[in-house]
């Protein structure tokens, strides 16, 4: 599986990348193809298209020693402009 890191960025506006995955590393579960960028769509701007990627994280990666069960997982849809390959 391809490993990716979510950007650790904190701009204002309508953002669909939840805080708890920013800066975290996960594996690509599947690429869903291009979708409208919500960061523009929310303001009725003509939206760019970005691939929407389902990324799988372990609870250990997201919560560290606070994890309830470290090997449990979370899958989140992330637009590709929020991801970098590791």
């Amino acid at each position: 599986m391809i490993k990716v890191r979510v950007h650790d960025r904190w701009p204002p506006g309508h953002i669909r990348t939840p805080a708890y995955i920013r800066g975290k590393v996960g594996c690509v579960e599947r690429n869903l193809g291009p979708f409208n960028n919500p960061e523009q769509n929310a303001y009725r701007l003509d939206p760019d298209q970005h691939d929407l990627v389902r990324v799988r994280f372990t609870m250990d990666e997201l919560w560290g020693t606070d994890a309830e069960h470290p090997t449990d997982t979370i899958e989140v849809e992330v637009y590709s402009h929020w991801l970098e390959k590791v």
Partner: peptide, 15 residues
């Protein structure tokens, strides 16, 4: 059970 993986799906976007 502890040996079963819990997999959470966060519907953040278009799915």
């Amino acid at each position: 059970a502890p040996n079963i993986e819990v997999r959470v799906h966060d519907s953040t976007a278009d799915m």
